[in-house]
Computed example of a mutant assay.
Amino acid sequence: MSTTTNTVVLFKEDPGRGWVEEKHMEVTKQDFNADAVELKEGEVLLKIKYLSLDPYMRGRMQTKAKSYSAPFEIGKPLQAGGIGEVYRVGKGTTLKTGDLVLGFVEWAQWFVAAEKGLKKLEIFDGVPISYNLGVLGMPGITAYGGLMKIGEPKEGETVYVSGAAGAVGLLVGQLARLRGCRVVGSAGTDDKVKVLLEEAGYDAAFNYKTVKSLDAAFKEHCPKGIDIYFDNVGGEMLDVALTHMNVHSRIPVCGAISQYNASEQYGVKNLMQTVIKRIKIQGFLSTDLYGDQELVKNFTKDVVALVKEGKIVYKEHIVEGIENAPSAFVGLLKGANTGKQIIKVA
């Protein structure tokens, strides 16, 4: 088998503040022959099957901003976590043709990767391989580690999750429920709220866009206050939630998607609540969590078992075709997805 082109998505322009648009990315077709491309020692050629699109990528589009992750380079391919099938192998590799691997790849149909940066996938009966980019991957350990290590849930506590129908939030609520907590979530459409209540087992949920006010919503759905707020949204949502937190409550800060495309950052006004109520607020990264071997061990054991036993409901928002990745990414930032945003490349 050979191919004469490789479809690759390039980072074309820094969007600055404000919304990312498709024009900031460029779909290109490059000359490519899978049977002839040179492989150095320790390299393999991957045929990309799935790509993961995640909100943190928005930060990598700010080329002049300091962040925890290096910015994308203008004119170069965008990058993402992905699953690929080994098509060819170079000298000195242990992988074999046909192996499925997980790694950091380009937004492309084909990618030459160093074997040392790849992980051979373990295949579980009845579990889609794309779950390794979601519930069994980075979003999964983000949900599990943020809740367990920072949130420290206790039976009977109230857990509130913003962005609850996303890749991380959907799992957080279910894990909290399994530990005997009362779980409340918010999302941006009535259909997402329905998923939370009818499929993910949330005790209560609301559409933050249509409620009379966030304050009224918290009074209604969290009448005993909030013990753990798993924050995916930041901004006004965090500001109002602070006034409903209980004494010695905890806030794992996973993200602030309401601010990623804001032309002006929202100034949180209620931080004095952290002193009055002795609230713990802690931001975290998945890379921190992967460094905790005991946590990773427990995550793998617990979540794989829950998925295989059907005790966890997980949803994927799959868009087919690498050429549709730019529009899918814009949609992700605007909340068009329910569950994990995936690009099916092949």
Rank of each mutant, 00 (worst) to 15 (best):
A167W: 04
E198D: 15
G140M: 00
K224T: 11
A204Q: 13
Y131H: 14
G137N: 13
G140F: 06
A165Y: 03
G151D: 08
S162F: 09
T189I: 00
K224Q: 14
R182F: 08
T189F: 09
N132H: 15
Y229L: 00
L175I: 14
L136P: 10
N207P: 06
K224I: 00
R177N: 15
S186D: 10
G137L: 14
I141H: 12
A200N: 13
Y202N: 08
G163V: 07
D227R: 00
G185S: 09
T142K: 10
N207F: 09
A204W: 04
K194V: 03
L197Y: 04
G173Q: 07
L147C: 00
F206D: 14
V172H: 15
Q174P: 15
Y229F: 15
V183S: 13
A217E: 01
G134H: 04
V183Y: 15
A164E: 09
Y202L: 06
G225R: 06
L214D: 07
L136G: 14
L170S: 15
K212Q: 15
Y202P: 07
N207A: 06
G185P: 14
C222I: 01
L170F: 06
M148N: 09
G185D: 14
I129C: 10
S213C: 00
S162L: 11
V193C: 15
V168E: 10
R177A: 15
M138K: 02
D190H: 05
F218Q: 02
Q174V: 04
F218V: 02
A167T: 04
H221E: 08
T142C: 03
P128K: 04
A216V: 02
L170C: 11
H221G: 09
D231K: 06
E220Y: 10
Y202V: 04
D231Y: 08
K194H: 11
A217M: 05
N132M: 13
D191R: 09
K149I: 02
D231R: 04
A205M: 03
K192E: 13
V168Y: 13
G201Y: 05
G134F: 01
F218G: 10
F218C: 00
K212W: 07
G163E: 12
L175F: 11
V195D: 14
D231A: 07
V211N: 11
V195E: 14
V168A: 10
P139Y: 05
V161Y: 13
A167V: 11
M138N: 13
K219W: 03
E220D: 12
P139E: 07
I129Y: 12
L133S: 07
A164S: 13
T189V: 03
I228V: 06
E155P: 04
Y144F: 14
R179T: 01
R177E: 10
V183G: 02
A165V: 03
V168R: 04
Y202T: 08
F206E: 10
V172K: 09
S130F: 07
T210G: 07
V172L: 11
T158H: 01
E157G: 02
E199A: 08
T210Q: 02
G145A: 02
G134D: 03
I141L: 13
V211Q: 12
L196Y: 06
S186V: 03
D190G: 09
T158S: 06
